[in-house]
Design a protein around this nucleic acid. Structure first.
Length: 119
RNA sequence: AGGAGUGGGCGCAUGAUCGCGCUGGCGCAGGUCGCCGGUGAGGAAAGUCCGGACUCCGCAGGGCAGGAUGGUUCGUAACGCGAACCGGGGGCGACCCCGGGAAAGUGCCACAGAAAACAGACCGCCCCGGUUUUCCGGGGUAAGGGUGAAACGGCGAGGUAAGAGCUCACCGCUUUCAUGGUGACAUGAAAGGCACGGCAAACCCCAUCCGGAGUAAGACCAAAUAGGAAAGCGUUUGAGGGCUGCCCGCCCGAGGCUUUCGGGUAGGUUGCAAGAGGUGCCGGGUGACCGGCAUCCCAGAUAAAUGAUCAUGGCCCCGCAAGGGGUACAGAAUUCGGCUUAUAGCCCACUCCUUUUU
RNA sequence: CGGGAUGUAGCGCAGUCUGGUAGCGCACUUGAAUGGGGUUCAAGGGGCCGGAGGUUCGAAUCCUCUCAUCCCGA
């Protein structure tokens, strides 16, 4: 868990992918890690920060959809410093993934991150 | 006490820490910046079922189609919404549900039944003739039987060979008149003498209303590609286009239009939030609602902000207790008025029924 | 934001406009034929027509609301 207070855990808009082009670039050139309920796609971006993109598919109710995004974003905010810099990451969530807290996301993501080659 | 009806309201609160959008101010190293403050989802934001505002389409016009609504009168910017009333139906009741026209026409009414729609007669009933344990023929009749969702006024009396609105009383129906009401309609009187089955959420008729698109409307700035290729049509005797779908009619119209292929851009600003606005008081109206005064400013995102963690406290459920669990439906996207649908747990007001006690 | 289509047997579809009996193919079950299987032939079972109300004597069909799935346009 993050050591409190040292680094500020901010999450400005620039740290989120927002253009279709950016998403397409990650989808086409990135590496995929498949999990049970979501996929994790990443690629180097040439910047000195990492960026996050969230894709939720198949969840129809807006409340549930937004909640998934917010929780994933919160998880990313808290753990951003541990993710290798200068890379774009897209988390593509499939249908039956109803996380209730950032910790749950962490538990689900960590096994995949372990395989991430930090090169 | 229990059950029920109608109308209305709330729909977690407070604090701390870390974050996010918009915004005011200040600072500088002038941007992926920092600090201080303000503000930030709903009663349905939902479904997109109606009606408006706004914007563009060049709102000339006429006709035909097409769609919607459907007791009356009000309310409203408008409505398919709301209010009050009228008529019919349901409920012991509070109360709830339904609503043009079937004597303009067309069509449909399966099965059963004699007959299903300007009537007709299977079994009956009665009379006459023949024959005579019985049955046959002719005529009258529609009260009774049976079928069906529905059977040609209902019920009683008179009357008759048996019967029948054949006659009469009451009820219903139709027509006319009178009175009351803005009106739907109500009440009363007279006459007619039974003619008029149901279905228009079947076609249809009648009345009223409706131009088309939609904020990705539309306006501005910036960037980029290209003045491309093929086919067809046509240049005043007019291709093609616009005016809603069609017709009439009108208008525009020349190195142009249509189709296909190929190529490019899809970034920013605005629209974009002070509104048929909210709250309070007063006044008018049975009511929906309207008027006046005061006061408040109340989200503006764009792969789309309103979140996470912790604590304390409400409320509900389980449990003797310690304690444990739960806290719905659901997320703004130009905007407003309705409708419809979803919704844990509650609260308030008025009313009805049953039972008990006094 | 706007416009449309479809839900019927395990699967794919008719029937809906014009209301009264839900039918076709594949699959399934049983029997026949074969030494056995396939093919073939014969017979049979299986549906409260996506859900809830309403209109009608009667609704898969007509009307209203609602739930899914799919497809267009800007």
């Amino acid at each position: 868990m993050p050591d409190k207070g040292k680094a500020r855990q901010t999450l400005p808009k620039g740290a989120l992918l927002s253009k279709p082009k950016e998403f397409q670039a990650v989808y086409q050139n990135g590496k995929r890690l498949r999990g049970k309920e979501f996929s994790l796609i990443f690629m180097p971006n040439g910047l000195n920060t990492n960026r996050l993109g969230i894709s939720v598919h198949g969840v129809k109710r807006a409340v549930a959809r937004n909640r998934i995004k917010r929780i994933i974003r919160e998880f990313y905010r808290l753990n951003r410093q541990f993710i290798s810099p200068s890379s774009d990451i897209v988390i593509a969530v499939r249908k039956d993934f109803p996380p209730d807290s950032p910790q749950e996301v962490g538990r689900a993501v960590r096994p995949l991150l372990r395989n991430l080659p930090l090169a």
